[in-house]
Design a binder for these strands. Structure first.
Lengths: 177, 177
DNA sequence: AAATATTATTTGAGGCTACTAACATAGGGG
DNA sequence: CCCCTATGTTAGTAGCCTCAAATAATATTT
C-alpha cells in the first residue's frame, strides 16, 4: 500500500507484446534521433491508435517517458528490458541463420516470436553452445561443416552408422513431481 | 457464400491457445479411455468454464466433436493439428534437454511456448540437426561431449585455442582464424 | 498569420481468453 | 425413487490488444 495508484510501476510481469514494443523502441532509438508514434506503428505492423494506448500503458508502468504529442523516450528500466529482448533476438537469429541455416527473413520472424518464451538460463546455454561451436575450430567448425554436408546429402550420411529410432516417448520415466 | 454460418470450419488460422488445447486433448486421448472437461481443465491449468467455451469454439471450427455433457472427441482435422503440435513439442523438448541440458521441467514449459512459433521448415532443420548429432558419433557425440566439458569448465576450454573475448559483438570480423 | 498537410489522440467497438458465481445435469447410495 | 455429490454449463465480467472513425494538435507551405 505504500506503492501504486492503480498500475504505476506495478509488479505484474510484462506481456510479450509489451516487450516487443520496448524492443522496437530500443531499436529505433539507435537508428533515429527522435522516435514518433508513426515509426513505432510501422515497425510493429499496427495502427497508430494501438501505439498510443500502449504508450499510455508503458508510461504507467514506468517503462517510457511519454507525454502527448511529444517524442518517445525509454526510462532506464524500459531500456534494460528493450536491450535484453534485443539480445535474445540476436542470439536466436544467429542460431537460426548460422547453425540451422534458415533464411534471414524467416529466421528474423521466428526469432521475434521465440525471444519472449525463453528463460535467461536457456538463452545462456544457447549462447554457450554457439560460442563453443565458434571458438573451438577443431571440435566446432569442422563439425559444423560435417553438418552442412549432412544436410546436403539428403540426411543420409553413409559415413556414420545410423542408430536411428524415433526417439519420442521415453521421457515419461522422470516426469512430474 | 457457399461456406460458413459464422465461423464453422473457418479459414482463419488457429490461435496458439487453440493449438494448446488440441495438443492437450490429443495427449489425453492416448492416456485415457474417455476425456472429460475436468481433465482438460487440469492439464491446461484453467477452470472448467474456460474449457467449456473453448470446446464450443473448437466444435464450430470442426476440430472436435462435442456435445454438452458428453465426452470429448477429436475430429480427423483436430487430431492432425494435435499430433503436429505434439511432434513439435517433442523435438524442442529433446533439443533443450539433450543438447542444451536444460532441466526437464523448465524445458517442458519452454517447449510448450515455442511449439507454436516455429515453422515446419525450421522444425525440420532442428530435427536434422539433432539427428546428425546422434547418428554420427565421431563428429557428433564426441563433439557433444566436448561441449559438456566446455560447459563444466566455466566456458574456458583450454584445449581449444581460446581466441575468446566476450563473444557478443565481434562475429562481424571472424569466421576464419 | 492562414491554409493545408501531417501526425497523434479519443472514442467506441470487437475478438480472445480467462475468471467467479449461480444454475443444471448425471449417476450412485439410501 | 429421491437426494446428494461429481461434473458441466450459463451468465456476466474483466484484461489485453487491436481496429476504424472522428477529432485534435502540430508542422509546413503559402
Amino acid at each position: 500500500m505504500v506503492t501504486n495508484n492503480k498500475d504505476s510501476i506495478a509488479e505484474k510481469p510484462l506481456t510479450s507484446v509489451m516487450e516487443d514494443y520496448l524492443e522496437a523502441i530500443f531499436d529505433l532509438d539507435q537508428e533515429k534521433k527522435f522516435i514518433r508514434v508513426k515509426d513505432i506503428a510501422k515497425r510493429m505492423g499496427v495502427k497508430m491508435p494501438t501505439v498510443s494506448s500502449m504508450l499510455k500503458t508503458l508510461n504507467n508502468r514506468g517503462l517510457v517517458n511519454y507525454e502527448k504529442y511529444a517524442y518517445v523516450e525509454l526510462t532506464k528500466n524500459g531500456e534494460d528490458v528493450g536491450k535484453e529482448i534485443r539480445r535474445r533476438h540476436e542470439v536466436l537469429l544467429k542460431f537460426l541463420t548460422e547453425i540451422l541455416e534458415i533464411g534471414f527473413d524467416i529466421a528474423d520472424v521466428e526469432a521475434c516470436k521465440m525471444e519472449h518464451t525463453l528463460s535467461s538460463a536457456t538463452l545462456d546455454r544457447l549462447t554457450g553452445f554457439m560460442e563453443f561451436i565458434q571458438t573451438c575450430p577443431r571440435a566446432g567448425e569442422s563439425w559444423l561443416k560435417y553438418f552442412k554436408e549432412y544436410l546436403v546429402d539428403g540426411h543420409r550420411p553413409e559415413k556414420c552408422q545410423a542408430r536411428s529410432k524415433t526417439f519420442s516417448h521415453e521421457f515419461e520415466s522422470q516426469v512430474q513431481t
